[in-house]
Design a protein around this nucleic acid. Structure first.
Length: 293
DNA sequence: CGTGTTTGACCTGCGC
DNA sequence: GCGCAGGTCAAACACG
């Protein structure tokens, strides 16, 4: 991937110019990009869903072939460093534990948010394990890993080089646990309702129902508003981890709605975001990039 | 003291 | 085969 930012190039434009969430980019192996912009006529312009095989978020890839099954179930290992993540498999390879094993990619979903805060609170606790300057962007990219030792989810956070106000968050993998926090009203739970993303017109092959999306919780930036059905729901500003913790101490935890991966149902994306006032995204099931191959 | 961040080194994959 | 860039490790450090 030469220039992720470049890939996002069209994103930010859409984001800023177009209302609501849009979905762009992505790859056959499970990467995509949700971009969020404010005024939002339609919550998710899933019609614009476009998974790009060029996989902007995935390192050009090594065989995308082995990544057939949905979310590679998290390996139930303790907290060995080299156990959990796909890439740590790499590291493991270094140590000879899994030599030769290619990095298995997990489904990736990228979101673009207009925020001054780099690390948007999403209901999970993350530990930063690296930061790297990327060539395509003047801004460094930060790498986070879910603090749950059994959880393989990783997250990359970077700012768009095109629009520094835009934070690009890329989730990889799937949480195998519930959220550890729930910023009151400040986050959008995405995980309780399963949803299918309709790719009509985008793909010739229907998406297998057993594809999962990582559940995500979002705190949207200040001005952000989430469109639910035909309503715009003002959201609270994104919280930093610290702010979140403070909040948690001050208020009782709310019931967590989400599950890491709901069983596939035949909900449509529209149904997911519109009906029932579920999470913004719902548990998106059947992401193109995650389809079996 | 526990937890999270910082940061330089190291490794791997890919393009040329 | 080589060099580059991305991604991760792990020790040191900071903070509550």
């Amino acid at each position: 991937m030469d220039d992720e930012a470049a890939n996002f190039g069209s994103g930010p434009d859409n984001v800023v110019g177009e209302p609501g969430w849009t979905f762009v980019g992505g790859g056959d192996e499970g990467s995509g990009l949700f971009s969020y912009g404010f005024p939002a006529p339609s919550p998710f312009d899933l019609a614009d869903l476009a998974w790009d095989r060029s996989q902007p978020f995935a390192r050009s890839g090594s065989s995308s072939s082995e990544e057939t099954e949905p979310p590679p179930e998290p390996e139930e290992k303790p907290s060995e460093r080299s156990s959990a993540t796909a890439s740590s498999a790499l590291a493991a390879a270094n140590k000879g534990t899994k030599k030769g094993q290619k990095r298995s990619r997990q489904p990736r979903v990228a979101f673009m948010t207009k925020s001054e805060i780099d690390h948007l609170e999403d209901g999970y606790r993350w530990r930063k394990y690296g930061q790297k300057a990327v060539k395509s962007s003047p801004f460094p990219r930060s790498y986070y890993r879910c603090t749950n030792s059994k959880c393989t989810v990783k997250k990359r956070v970077e700012r768009s080089s095109d629009d520094p106000a835009t934070v690009i968050t890329t989730y990889e993998g799937q949480h195998c646990h519930h959220t550890v926090s729930f910023p009151r009203g400040g986050s959008v739970t995405v995980g309780s309702a399963a949803a299918h993303i309709s790719l009509a017109g985008q793909f010739t092959t229907p998406m297998p129902p057993q594809l999962y999306f990582p559940s995500l919780h979002f705190s949207l930036p200040n001005r952000a508003m989430v469109s639910s059905g035909s309503h715009l729901l003002p959201l609270r500003p994104a919280l930093t981890n610290q702010q979140l913790r403070q909040q948690q101490q001050q208020m009782p935890a709310e019931p967590s709605l989400e599950l890491t991966s709901s069983p596939p149902t035949t909900t449509t994306a529209a149904a997911a975001n519109g009906s029932g006032g579920e999470g913004l995204l719902g548990d998106i099931v059947g992401v193109p990039g995650m389809r079996n191959r």
